[in-house]
Design a protein around this nucleic acid. Structure first.
Lengths: 225, 225
DNA sequence: ACCTGAACACCGTTCAAGT
DNA sequence: ACCTGAACACCGTTCAAGT
């Protein structure tokens, strides 16, 4: 039965926001690998070429999606020390990324630059300032903190947003276990400690370490630039 | 003019090593985006299906390439403090990744697990041990160090291994400059300092910070696991 | 200006069939 | 066991032509 025009809901006007929102729908329902120009176009009942009026390319679309999702993170916890609040804000960022690790993967090389990302940076800078971290160190430090969180989330991604990456991880696990104490004494000695902890525990420790590090490591030649 | 069989160099037997080496050839000549199963198969004068006997998928092929390239890094500097030597080893790792940022991109989520990667880990663990970093912190710390280096290199990649990612970067630069001091006072106050320094300078500072951090941040509940 | 059909030039992966 | 032709089910992006 061919659809008549009237059965179809009115085709909404194409806008950047509409494209991003359709993309988020597909992301939630089918994962990032399905968030392709062609798939989104189909969702909006048009051809892929039409999207290029609003979005430069696929990478930009992915970045726009992430920025949109960052609108839901909690950036203003009131309680606890400044360190604890930095941890809370970054924890909220990380939880969003962990929901869609393949989005994190794409964020490693195409950072978002929308309002929500800027709000996150601003918030972190404010907290670092409150904690007395010198401005130059804070400026470079936010980046390191966000890089670590993003990379950790990305690590749990695969092109397929699922099962497949177990392969690579197993390979590393086996490689670490199969190591000889003669050729790799430290790896053998540390053994399971190299792989211990949940990703969350490791990231949490990593962020605290980085925070300690950036607070105590002066940037070269006084102020950069 | 159709080629006779005798004009063609003898078709070498297919091996995993042969595949990886052909892939590195294509990588050097045309960049990672051209390192596809189909392209490598063509290089080896066979069909793509044949490669699946030796390589599980494209991600595994990329990881194998990286491990191979890691064979050339310098892991045993003799001079300087342990910190300086950690920096040298990681610098060598980073330089390799900076040559092929898109390989770094893929390494963020599919770590290599070959011999050369294990050698690198072993070397770093030995240096951390020499520096008196407690084993539990060293075990988790190597990971953080490698993640930061890998993510930083990946940041300079794009699907296209070139020009294109200037777009995203420009977008961030413009966004940071266009920010209002009312809504984002810290970003406005820091201004160009947020973007100052070369990637190398920032990474070097980042690694030193992380090193300071991991050396001074105890892992939860004594020993993990 | 905005939108689109159609085309160009590719992908990864599987599988039945051959050797 | 190893290798392969052929097919399946997709991609991103461009561009000339339409409205």
């Amino acid at each position: 039965m061919p659809r008549s025009r009237r059965e179809r809901p009115a085709k909404p006007a194409l806008t950047r926001a509409g494209i991003v929102s359709a993309a988020i729908g597909v992301l939630r329902a089918e994962g990032l690998p399905k968030v392709t120009m062609r798939r989104i176009a189909q969702e909006l009942d048009t051809g892929p070429a039409s999207l290029y009026v609003y979005v430069r390319n696929t990478a930009e679309l992915h970045a726009a999606i992430l920025d949109e999702l960052l609108g839901t993170i909690e950036t203003a916890p009131e309680r606890g020390s400044w360190r604890a609040r930095v941890e809370q804000v970054l924890g909220s960022y990380t939880r969003t990324l962990f929901e869609y690790p393949s989005l994190a993967r794409s964020a490693v090389s195409a950072r978002p630059s929308g309002e929500n990302y800027l709000n996150l940076c601003e918030r972190l800078l404010a907290l670092l300032d409150e904690g007395g971290v010198p401005p130059a160190q804070a400026a470079w430090g936010v980046d390191v903190l966000l890089q670590l969180a993003t990379a950790t989330a990305a690590e749990h991604a695969t092109q397929d947003e699922s099962s497949d990456n177990a392969d690579e991880w197993d390979a590393l696990t086996r490689a670490l276990h199969g190591v000889s104490a003669d050729t790799h004494p430290r790896i053998a000695a540390l053994g399971p400690r190299l792989l211990s902890g949940t990703p969350e525990q490791r990231l949490s420790w990593g962020l605290r370490s980085v925070l300690n590090g950036i607070a105590h490591t002066p940037v070269p030649e006084g102020e950069p630039k």
